[in-house]
């Protein structure tokens, strides 16, 4: 009886479902549909102009997995993405956690100002971040090399962007500089949301700051760590702007900074340093990378749900 009355008060589906249609339609048309059709494009040889005609079946895929063909540059690029992920993970999880913990324990007003300041580089276009640092890291007249020389540290004045050993870590460092604000805020949010009873209980039991951190705060932030790791993983495969600006489309020196984004760009749109070109091949490469990224991301989400439960 009560149920029936309640239902009669609620509006009928048709009166509200129409509000869902415009958003769903735009999303399906311009995100889901292109996503699904990348599977179709990957089966064609297509130069980027006109209709899809030259059907080659799994030809693009067999070229990708051919050791004499595309496998080597693709594996190299993906490994650079994995390296990117590993180093950003260390930087954003360790330094990000440390900064969040310090912000958590200092005066709230100071903390609020610093939170906003730390977030600012995250808002700057990555292209600008790239130019900014390429100006400072210019080996000749750049501010950093001058500062190092002036401080008598000229042995540290290295071609950070020009040596194949240092270029990739330098790009990751620049990316971490720009992105640090986000993990800091995520960690801080999680710390603020720890119930104060738990912290009070720890204090009553005589736990010092270090014990509280390692035994209470750290374990309670496990699922936040997995969130940060997952987001870092996904964003590590989107890297493109910084490498493009700092190292060009050929991702020099000698492909030392070639990531999936730059390889994909060269394959689809050509450009200096392209190994093989073709939009169909690029689409197939994206499909392969997508499954690789997704399988690992799914594992991380699964892990997060397991950790979140207990």
């Amino acid at each position: 009886m009560r149920r029936a009355r309640r239902r009669s008060l609620r509006p009928r589906p048709l009166s509200y479902l129409w509000m869902l249609i415009p958003g769903l339609a735009v999303y399906l048309a311009f995100t889901v549909y292109p996503f699904l059709s990348s599977l179709r494009y990957s089966l064609y040889n297509w130069t980027g102009v006109g209709a899809l005609r030259d059907f080659i079946g799994l030809g693009n895929y067999s070229f990708i997995f051919n050791p004499q063909g595309f496998l080597h540059p693709l594996v190299r690029a993906v490994l650079h993405n994995v390296y990117f992920f590993g180093l950003s993970f260390v930087l954003s999880c360790l330094l990000g956690f440390l900064l969040a913990y310090l912000l958590y324990s200092v005066n709230t007003r100071v903390s609020a100002w610093l939170q906003a300041l730390y977030f600012v580089p995250y808002l700057i276009p990555p292209v600008v971040v790239g130019y900014l640092w390429s100006i400072y890291l210019e080996p000749g007249f750049g501010a950093i090399s001058r500062a190092l020389n002036a401080l008598g540290l000229s042995w540290l004045n290295l071609p950070y962007l020009g040596s194949s050993r240092l270029a990739l870590p330098t790009v990751v460092g620049i990316s971490a500089w720009a992105g640090m604000g986000f993990p800091v805020l995520l960690f801080l949010a999680a710390m603020i949301n720890i119930p104060s009873e738990i912290l009070d209980a720890a204090k009553i039991d005589g736990a010092g700051a270090t014990t509280t951190m390692t035994r209470v705060i750290f374990p309670m932030l496990r699922s936040t760590f997995v969130t940060v790791v997952t987001l870092t993983w996904l964003s590590s495969f989107l890297v493109f702007d910084l490498v493009y600006v700092l190292e060009g489309t050929q991702a020099g020196p000698n492909y030392a900074t070639d990531v999936f984004g730059t390889l994909f760009y060269r394959t689809a749109w050509g450009g200096f340093g392209a190994t093989a070109t073709g939009m169909g091949l690029a689409a197939a490469t994206a499909v392969v990378a997508f499954f690789f990224i997704m399988i690992i991301a799914a594992l991380m989400v699964w892990l997060q749900q397991r950790l979140g439960r207990d």
């Binding site: 999303y27 995100t31 292109p34 059709s37 990348s38 980027g48 996904l234 989107l238 994206a286």
Partner: peptide, 19 residues
Amino acid sequence: AGLALPIQMIAVPYFGMME
């Protein structure tokens, strides 16, 4: 699901669509 989609994945078909 779109949250986990690397946006470059749709670049080629999107280019074709816009064409």
